[in-house]
Amino acid sequence: MRPEITQHLEEIDATLTTIEKVMNLDEMAERVRELEQQASDPSLWDDPALAQGVTSELSSVQAKLRKVTELRSRLDDVPVMYELAEEEEDGDTSIVDEEIADLAEAVDSLEVTTMLSGEYDEREAVINIRAGAGGVDAADFAEMLMRMYTRWAEKNGHKVDVYDTSYAEEAGIKSATFVVHGEYMYGQLSVEQGAHRLVRLSPFDNQGRRQTSFAEVEVLPVVETTDHIDVPDADIRVDVYRSSGPGGQSVNTTDSAVRITHVPTGIVVTCQNEKSQIQNKASAMRVLQAKLLERQRQEEKAEMDALGAGGNASWGNQMRSYVLHPYQMVKDLRTNYEVGDPSKVLDGDIDGFLEAGIRWRMAEERGED
């Protein structure tokens, strides 16, 4: 093999070895055996909630273990594949080169996943997007961001459920709430939280002037049954109303949309994606619980910070700029990661920003420069 190929493989091997140590494969294999033993006990299903938890964890641990062992096997096979390719008449190693590139990408992606070790990182994500300053341009930008995240989810095979969309009068949306399903969605997407800024020639300005607009992104972990979030009926007010689509167009002939107000905090959530009032209320309650869980977490963090136990990391307010005029660029203001093709980013190509954000967050938590 060429020296540069050998060096590249050594770098991939070093990263994968570190991942294997962090994940502790022996411990994971032992956990699989324990869970398999529990799952094989017929009495487990006497408690459906416990059984679901056991089978879900078993499937998750097996998948993680299988992924890293398969990567190790593929990496071990590369030298033999390269040798066989070089022995062919044409000596074409392009297929092996592609395999090395795929391996490098997969190992880098897995490395980022091992950084997601927060309490809620493995969970699914609730995303709230709200139009900020900038009038109709801000509403249009909020809708652009919603499309960006849903496109990213689709490209990565993650299902999205839209709970509520409040459309603006002229164009775009005032706000939207949706859930991105899949493991580690909260851990990955939580780095998107903050104010996003768009600079462009406004398509809504008769004189075509440059406009700066803002949209706020909030990312919350989906609440699970094990979370202790008590919401007494006396603390909430439930209003029902008729669902509506863009421009006030009715999408439902019954009062099935639900608005829940948490009286003690003033938090308001709505859901109108289902035709059933009961289903909408259940979805709205899940979002409310997610917001209360985050509020509780932030209060606890503030108390720890006050005691000197917390770090000084702050997401700040404005975290990313999307510039469409007078030049083309999207730049993260925390990590300085930037790309020169906003159209690709707004079409869901945000993996680079997510990875840079996760690495930045880890460095902040470690107190690194």
Rank of each mutant, 00 (worst) to 15 (best):
M1G: 14
E4W: 07
Q7M: 11
Q7W: 07
L16Y: 08
I19D: 12
M23R: 12
R31Y: 02
Q38D: 15
L44Y: 09
L44Q: 08
W45R: 12
Q52T: 11
V54D: 10
S60C: 06
V61N: 05
Q62M: 13
R66G: 12
K67C: 08
R72I: 12
D76Q: 14
D77V: 03
V80Q: 13
E86R: 15
G91S: 13
G91I: 10
D92E: 06
L103Q: 09
L103R: 11
V107H: 01
D108W: 01
E111D: 10
T114W: 11
D121W: 14
V126R: 02
I127Q: 02
I127K: 00
N128K: 00
I129E: 00
D140H: 10
Y149D: 08
T150R: 15
D161C: 06
Y163V: 05
Y163K: 08
A168I: 03
F178R: 04
V180F: 06
Y186Q: 14
R209V: 00
T212I: 00
L220P: 13
V223S: 04
T226C: 07
H228N: 12
Y241Q: 11
P246W: 14
G247L: 10
G248V: 04
G248F: 04
G248A: 04
S256W: 06
P264F: 08
T265V: 07
G266M: 06
A282S: 14
R286S: 14
V287G: 08
K291S: 04
E299L: 08
E303G: 03
G308K: 10
G316Q: 12
K344S: 13
D351A: 14
G357C: 02
G357I: 01
R359W: 04
R361C: 01
M362A: 15
D369T: 14
